[in-house]
Amino acid sequence: MISEGEIEKLGELAKVELTREEIKNYKKDIQEILDYFETLKKVDTEGVEPLVHPLELVNSFREDEAAEIIPEESKFLVKESPDKKGDYVKVGRVLSF
């Protein structure tokens, strides 16, 4: 059984704030979904290789060449970032002392 404490912890780790109400509701929803997943336990997967990609692609290499940087495009991207200062993307404090 998943607990409200686990939901709260997952929220913290995934950086989504959850209200008490949301924690309660997600606990119920996710427990139902996990119960549904129980059906998978019946499947014999002994010796089966996992498939993480439908077409099992091989590496798609490019030539190791410097790409042209288009100044307008870089400016555009900086402009669309959540916060900025001049030509720089501004981020919140990462380290705390």
């Binding site: 780790l13 996710i30 499947v43 997967t45 089966v48």
Partner: peptide, 29 residues
């Protein structure tokens, strides 16, 4: 948010093999 929480759960240490690992094998089947 529901899917972020669920996704984080099935990938978390201790549950990875039982959920994501198992599902990837069944995907092959």
């Amino acid at each position: 948010k529901r899917r972020i929480i669920l996704g984080s759960y099935v990938l978390s240490a201790g549950y990875y093999d039982a959920y994501y690992g198992k599902a990837s094998k069944i995907r092959r089947l």
